[in-house]
């Protein structure tokens, strides 16, 4: 399943378990899909496909939003939360803290939709939990 197949499926589907999905391909060296889930428009999910996995990523906050005084504490909190948080994990790309979920390349489309909804919900949960560490 590559991003073009996925984009087509997302635009054909429209809705999954009561959530509206919107899909927009982002041009670049690597094909990326921007998926926005109804009610979570501010936290779009970015999907890219590699040889072995499907990566779904949401951006949480930039380094400049983090209170430098409690940064270490926040990171420890993130490590602690990584396991209890279902299906998603914290990571960092460049200067941005992200939440991501990785799926096997053989996952079903329903699995992906479920993953994206979970990722959006987890992102709201995560920002709420980490709000005290933000400027």
């Amino acid at each position: 399943m590559d991003t073009k197949d996925l984009a087509l499926k997302f635009s054909e589907m429209g809705e999954f378990k009561g959530y509206d999905f919107e899909c927009q391909p982002i041009p670049g060296d690597v094909d990326v899909l921007q998926i926005t889930v109804e009610d979570f428009e501010e936290i779009p999910c970015y999907v890219s496909v590699t040889d072995t996995q499907i990566l779904c990523i949401t951006y949480l906050m930039g380094e400049d939003e983090v209170n430098p005084e409690t940064r270490a504490e926040m990171m420890e909190e993130m490590l602690e939360l990584n396991i209890p948080m279902p299906l998603s994990s914290f990571s960092k790309i460049g200067e941005r803290y992200v939440l991501f979920g990785a799926l096997s390349i053989n996952s079903s489309f329903d699995d992906m939709c479920q993953e994206i909804i979970t990722l959006c919900e987890n992102s709201v949960e995560a920002i709420t939990a980490l709000e005290e560490f933000l400027l």
Binding site: I26, P27, G28, D29, V30, V32, Q34, Y46, S48, T50, L55, I57, Y59, I93, G94, R96
Partner: peptide, 11 residues
């Protein structure tokens, strides 16, 4: 791939 994707998103 992640870095390229990230660059595409930022762009």
């Amino acid at each position: 791939s992640v870095q390229k994707a990230s660059a595409a998103i930022t762009n």
